[in-house]
Structures are given as structure tokens and as C-alpha cells.
Computed example of a mutant assay.
Amino acid sequence: MSAAQSTTSTRKLPGLGPASAVRTKAEMASFFRNKQSLVFTLALPVLLMLVFGMIFKGKIEGTNVDFKQVFLAGIIASGVMATSFTGLAINVALEREMGLLRRIAASPMPRSAYFIGKVVRVVVTTVVEVAILMILAVVVFHLPLPSDLMRWGVLAWVTALGVSSCSLAGIAYTALIPNARSASAIVTPPFMVLQFISGVFYPFNLLPELLQKIALAFPLAWLCRGYRYVFLPDEFKVTETGGTWDLPMIAIMLGGWTILGMVLTCLVFRWRGPRVR
């Protein structure tokens, strides 16, 4: 072995920390430079809030809660899923088709650094999304801010678990996307259906029981429930399943989806797309 070969073989490869920092920096730069992705990810929930916020009126039967407040809490939860599930799944599918994932897999960079960079980017964009939606909801539609430290704390951990569960589910879901051209068509429909059955546009208790049971199997319904606890008065819990907020179950379901998403990602994630003939 030559001296040059010996030097190359003994050179230390980048560790997980430095590699993750580099990937995170690249992810953030790529996201904020891509105007189309930026608008699609951040603007759609804002537009939905502005449009539907002007339509919904009246009080929820049996409570003194405005119908609009229920929708605003739901659309903030929907914004979290939009950035962490929909946007991420489409982005990963595009990078796979471009060959970026194949090059990353063949490089000396730890593969886990790729996922860390993605999750950090999603965390940052989700915080920006939630902040924008909360400001609009408070300033334009007079949604009350969380009334105590307990609710602010719940806002933090519900958002954190929502991001982790939806992000990992989105990454695993890319196994069903054959190419970047079909990514939006495959990712958007389940997200839209979940919005309609999870209590985003309508109070959850007004939905048929079968749809409620289906929705409760997925993260978005629990995200909506968590945000309803954060933003709505305590009297509204009488409309929830079982007549209680059930915060422990929210944590269990979102945490369970985080674990399930991690397992599925390990089992089904593909670094290479289908070969083009």
C-alpha cells in the first residue's frame, strides 16, 4: 500500500454531529431558496385559514364556543401535518428521483445525518408555520392565546410529537411513491381526507361514528384534539370523545405513531428509485 493510500485509509470520516450540521444547513438553504416549495408548504394553510375563517360563524351547540375558534385550532394542527408529512414526502420523492439519495447512500456520510437534517428542517418550518397561523388567528379572528403555562406546555409537546410522528410517517410513505411526478397525487388525497374526518373543518363530534373511529387511528385527529385543549375553553371538552381532553392518550397515540413511523422507515425506505429503461 502506498503512503497516499495509507493516509486516505486512516483519515477519519466525518462524525454524525458534523455531518448532521452540514446536512441541516443544506436542507435549510434548499428549502428557503425554493420559492414554489416554500409557498406550497407555508401558504396553503394560511389561505385556508383566511377563507374558511371568514365563512364559519355561530356557536357550537351546547357550548359558548364560536364555531370559528374550533376551525382555527384545527387548521393550525393541519398546518403541522402539511409541513411535516405532505411537504416532506414530496420532497424526499423528488430527491430520490434526482439521484441525490443514491449519492448520499454511497458517500461516507452517516445515513442517519440525512434524516436528522430533514427533521431539523421540518421542525424549523413547522415553528414558522405555527407562529404565522397563530398570529393570524389571534390578530384577524381573535382566537384567544393559551390561558396558562400548562396550555403553553401542552402546545410545545403536542407540536413536538406531531412533527416527529408526521415526519416519520411521511418518510415511510415515500415507499408508495413510484416517481416525483406522481408524488403530489399520491400524498395529497390521504391528507385531504384526514382533514375532513379529523375535526379540522367540522367539530369532531358532528362526524359519523365510523369516520371518528377511522380518524382516531391516525395522528391528525389527536393533533387537533391537543390544539383544541390549548386554545379552547375547558367547557368544550364535553364535545370530545368521552367528554374529556384525555391528554395522556394524545401523548400515547402521537408517541406510538412516532415509533411506528421509525420502524416503517427502517423497513421500507428506499435510497434508490426504480430504474428508467
Results as ranks from 00 to 15, higher is better:
R102F: 00
I104F: 15
P190Q: 11
M49A: 09
R272E: 14
Q212A: 06
G256N: 04
P190S: 11
S198K: 13
G62H: 08
A137N: 06
Y229W: 10
L168V: 01
V139Y: 02
P144A: 01
V22Y: 13
F269C: 01
R272F: 03
M192A: 15
I132W: 11
I197W: 05
W157T: 11
C166L: 14
Y227A: 03
I75M: 13
P208W: 04
T258Q: 08
M54D: 05
K213M: 07
L48R: 00
I177Y: 05
M192W: 11
G153W: 03
R23P: 00
S78H: 13
L136N: 05
V70I: 13
Q212P: 00
A77E: 06
I252N: 07
M192H: 11
A21R: 14
E95T: 12
C166P: 01
S164W: 07
S37W: 10
A93Y: 12
R102P: 02
A169G: 11
V39Q: 06
S112Q: 10
A29S: 14
R121C: 11
S78A: 14
V123Y: 14
A73K: 08
V140P: 04
Q36T: 15
Y227K: 03
Y229H: 01
K25G: 15
S167F: 05
Y229M: 09
P203R: 03
M98K: 15
R270F: 00
V124E: 09
R181V: 13
S6E: 15
N205K: 01
D148T: 02
F71S: 08
N179H: 13
T174Y: 10
D148G: 11
K68V: 08
V163L: 09
F201Q: 07
R33L: 12
F56K: 10
P146T: 08
E209R: 09
F204C: 05
L47T: 03
V119H: 10
V51T: 01
S6T: 11
L168K: 12
L48W: 09
F85W: 14
P110F: 10
